[in-house]
Design a binder for these strands. Structure first.
Lengths: 344, 344
DNA sequence: GTGAAAGCGCTAACAC
DNA sequence: GTGTTAGCGCTTTCAC
């Protein structure tokens, strides 16, 4: 039995192929009852549009590109981050009968822009999702722009510009975490900043400062260290912070990898967590639950963010009259075992 | 200027489109002089065949599918495993001007087979790479077979069958690790088995037994526990093992996630690693370097394995006269901080 | 060896 | 709101 075509669906539904096409492509001007008949026929026949035929006829592809920082390019093992994005993007693509093409790329290479442009021109995706921190890098965004491909940026930081974006409330929820730590009685709350290339992560630092202020706590540069999002940098920062004459009783790291690094240091220095030191991260990657004690962190809704981005690209959900949309999907706190009341 | 089609090339070369097609597809029955004329025309016009049109007419594509167990389907956070495979597959695909389509799927669902078959029929990939443990599951392999798509299996265990595969020497290197632990003076070396669905992981248990024998050590069921590859199951197994009246002085887990779970237990029970207990894993995922102390483990060459698989599918490198090939890429031991001499 | 014609399954433009 | 018709750029027959 050959696989059903649009003609088979049309016959079963008693309509023309054009109407089937309209339903499949979610075009307007189809009566609801007609649409339902067609949808039923599609379900009965298990019809799946042939991508090659669509692409050929429409001069577009139904591929969505997902561009992100290549985890193999350096020792940045936030695999969960990427997998979550893929999962969300895949979900969005499937619901629109599109396919996902993954494009890890290393922004440290001088010619990333050219490589990316070539890659896009070769595969002609219908749209591109760019993950942070690439989403806030001019050379990356310009390269995509040059191909004329629609693009949605994930967590581009504050420079929203003309393109669509999907972000989370990094700043607000970071303030919330800081207030939570203050509420536990901590007065010396340190912060480990992330990779400065990553603008959205920088917002977490601003949120930390907001939270301090809202809790009536003084901000001090002595309680801040700058990492690069890696676990190793978290270790280095924690060591520096904990060696201070007045060490912090709580450390809030801009991501979980760095928080995990800080935890390693605490274990090594025989500092009890959360008895003597509270530790909080951001992202809620799998690692947060695998370390001992499990990390209090903030769950970034990456899956939903990426799904939303894919939908913006595949449906025509994208925003205002200029085709702009800047969605915010809120993050939520996950209180686990690594935070507790401040020591006496 | 619109991009040139096969007609433009035919006109410039003074031949029919069929001849151009023959040249492009490296088919026989073209006079050398004709072929050269066509090739020159292609070069002059910078002609690139339109993939969609090719795919539509030929019912094939230049896509390679990578099928693996969906990490979102359960709490199995071995993200590094998947990312490494993707990286390798991507590398192989690029060198053959093909694209990679990722297909996470949940083998626990009753209708995975049907879903997978539909997905393949929709995208019509030129080949499929199936990761373990899916690669040793009849219902998965059969579903792919039913589509007639060429397929390379990654670590399918011992049931090699007719299809191509790429594996590592799980058994031999596990024996090596066991001998290494024995060489450190350990006589009660426990083993945490992995998910029994995963045949290649089962080979690691056989290797453990080989290593014991080669070291003159007695095998005992009391020193074996069965997990499911997850970090949590590693915890449960380690607890069971360490509560024995004669607890082991070394634990070898069939993967790093479970070894990390065992490490959590040791930390909780204030058992010094590696002073009182040595711990070894398998895979060398990022987590192995992020925990404290860093795990002694075995580096599985996943990147190369997946790259090899992609090349088998894209070039015609695949093996013997029956189109079979069963490549083995050896794994190597990574000795870190979690193993040391047996306590007195 | 080479070519002509007939689709592949869909979308686009326009008719009704 | 819905249908008709003509391609999209290529591969496949099969004839020469």
């Amino acid at each position: 039995m050959p696989r059903p075509t649009i003609f088979d669906v049309a016959k079963v539904a008693g309509v023309s192929i054009k109407t089937v096409s309209r339903v499949v492509n979610r075009e307007p001007n189809v009566r609801t009852s007609t649409r339902e008949r067609v949808e039923e026929a599609i379900a009965v026949l298990k019809y799946r549009p042939d991508q090659s035929a669509r692409n050929l006829a429409s001069h577009r592809s139904h591929l969505i590109g997902l561009v992100y920082d290549d985890p193999a390019a350096y020792d940045m093992p936030s695999g969960g981050y990427i997998l979550d994005m893929q999962q969300g993007a895949l979900k969005g693509c499937r619901s629109a009968f599109s396919e996902l093409l993954i494009h890890p790329c290393d922004f440290r290479k001088k010619n990333v822009g050219i490589e990316l442009k070539e890659l896009i021109e070769e595969t002609r995706p219908a749209g591109i999702i760019v993950a942070a921190p690439l989403s806030n890098m001019p050379k990356i965004v310009r390269a995509i722009d040059a191909t004329g491909t629609p693009c949605v940026r994930l967590s581009p930081g504050n420079d929203l510009g003309k393109k669509c974006s999907v972000s989370t409330n990094d700043r607000e929820v970071s303030a919330e975490m800081t207030r939570y730590l203050a509420g536990l009685g901590h007065t010396r709350i340190a912060f480990i900043k992330g990779n400065p290339d990553h603008k959205a992560v920088a917002n977490r630092f601003l949120g930390y400062q907001d939270g301090l202020k809202e809790s009536g706590l003084e901000f001090s540069e002595n309680l801040v260290a700058e990492g690069d999002n890696s676990c190793g940098s978290g270790e280095a920062c924690a060591e520096k912070l904990l060696k201070r004459k007045k060490p912090p009783t709580a450390i809030f790291a801009a991501n979980d990898d760095m928080a995990a690094g800080a935890l390693r240091v605490a274990n090594r220095m025989k500092i009890d967590v959360p008895g003597q030191l509270s530790l909080a991260g951001f992202d809620d990657i799998a690692l947060a639950r695998q370390v001992e004690p499990a990390l209090t962190t903030i769950r970034q809704p990456l899956v939903q963010m990426a799904e939303r981005a894919a939908l913006m690209l595949t449906k025509n959900n994208n925003g205002d009259s200029n085709g702009n949309a800047h969605d915010i999907i809120p993050a939520v706190m996950k209180i686990r075992e690594s935070t507790g009341r401040a020591p006496e």
